[in-house]
Amino acid sequence: MSTLDAFERLNLETRIQYGLMGIFGTLCLIAAASPLELLTKAVVVSVLFGFTGGIWISHLVQIVQRAANRKQAATGQ
């Protein structure tokens, strides 16, 4: 319950990004284990992993931007 409470206390953008990463990552692993044709499976898994990694890297870049703004504001004061 406290995990869900902490998840609800997060920022809305962070919550959406974590949710999308969880969805695409889970679908990626499910597609990798699914009995599809090899080429189709490789394409689907690559696309889903690209979505997951792209959201993660963009989330990290956003966090770096916030941290840089906070650092600049702290040093300016």
Binding site: G53, W56, L60, K71
Partner: peptide, 17 residues
């Protein structure tokens, strides 16, 4: 992706995040 994450983690550590 893991190496990029580690690099960005080091940048966040430098920025006192």
């Amino acid at each position: 992706v893991a190496v990029i994450s580690f690099i960005i983690g080091a940048i966040l550590d430098i920025l006192d995040y």
